[in-house]
Amino acid sequence: MRRLIPYPLMMASLLLMWLLLAGFTVGQFIVGIGVALLAGQGLAALHPASPRLRRWDLIPKLIGIVLYDIVLSNIEVVKIIVTGDRRGRRAGFVNIPLELRDPIGLAILSVIVTSTPGTAWMDYDSSRSTVLLHVLDLVDEEAWVDTIKDRYEFLLREIFE
């Protein structure tokens, strides 16, 4: 079983994508399973790291928090663009040390940070494990560090480590 289905999560999402594109019929389901099995064997030859999820139950909470923050920061950035360059705003870089080491957790953190308008993930230094962010509205630097560390990194560490 382990050899036939090396990456169950990836293969299930591949099957779902196949069904979404080709239509939910029995025939496409069988073809999709064949494609997923073949792709799984191909992926096994590459030996990617399989994610180890410790806390499934926290994933909906993370998604909810991220969607809420994306809506809020969309409104913030729209305000900044529409009202023009006010004097008070300054953009700048923040260098944040991270405790998160899991590569998939870091990838998800980068997706969260970049998807949220107003923050952009610039560079990750793996030897010092620090991340360089660019923030559009850097009013309170400590607040941004706290947001990244307490809101996202804490949850990601709970889920992955």
Partner: peptide
């Protein structure tokens, strides 16, 4: 896109298209 056009530096401009890519 307007923000992308109006911002002064590249590092600020990189934030603007994320409005279109997120919501």
């Amino acid at each position: 896109s307007i923000g992308f056009y109006r911002f002064k530096s590249f590092y600020e401009r990189i934030h603007a298209p994320t409005l279109g890519t997120s919501w």
